[in-house]
Design a binder for these strands. Structure first.
Length: 187
DNA sequence: CTTGGGATGGTCT
DNA sequence: GACCATCCCAAGG
């Protein structure tokens, strides 16, 4: 298993966003298992980050960003999709989370296709709304503890280190000066 | 390959 | 009533 421990998430959100690249996201439903390697993440802060849900104040939706690190923050967006985040922040701060934007599929590819209702392997998990579909992650998983087997967890992944590419985050209009989108290439 | 518009509904003002 | 941390498909080069 090799779950990433709570302390992993108790660091600067940007550090955790980079650290999650190459780690493994695992989903277990009954006797079915889905997994993949995280290849793209984004960091979202608090009052320092106008692009963050937590920028203005704590609300019903963004509440998980203020709660225990190492848990899931799942929100519904664009009327159709869910986005999966991992709560992470330096203990001195009040809110923060890492959006998982892209994954390289490993196990359960056929289940992912079924969950997505599409066969195209190149488009199973290469976007935040796609990977939640493929992994069957919904609002029900919001608040789930990712440091143990709660049906959804994160474990160690790649052993070799990759070059990290940093760019502005996708789909936002403010905070573009922060290069908080991180990617690795995997082959 | 790139561009543009539609789907769709919760959240916040 | 506007705004989305999106995706898909069709049309145009």
């Amino acid at each position: 298993m090799n779950f990433l421990p709570r302390e992993f998430y108790s660091r600067n959100t940007v550090t955790v966003a980079k650290g999650l690249l190459g780690k493994r996201l695992v989903r277990k439903i009954g006797n079915q298992m889905i997994s993949g390697i995280i290849t793209e993440t984004e960091a979202y802060g608090h009052t320092d980050d106008p692009a963050s849900h937590a920028f203005r104040r704590e609300t019903e939706r963004n509440k998980p960003m203020f709660e225990e690190v190492g848990r899931a923050y799942v929100y519904f967006t664009y009327g159709m999709y869910f986005c999966f985040n991992v709560v992470a922040r330096n203990p001195k701060l009040k809110a923060g989370a890492v959006l998982i934007r892209s994954i390289e599929p490993e196990d359960g590819i056929n289940i992912m296709k079924k969950n997505r209702g599409k066969d195209d392997e190149k488009n199973l998990t290469n976007g935040p709304g796609k990977l939640t579909q493929a992994f069957n992650i919904t609002k029900k998983q919001c608040g789930v503890d990712l440091t143990k087997d709660s049906g959804l967890y994160i474990s160690e992944g790649l052993q070799t280190r990759r070059k990290i590419f940093a760019t502005p985050r996708i789909g936002i209009k403010t905070g573009l000066e922060n290069l908080w989108n991180f990617k690795i290439k995997i082959s």
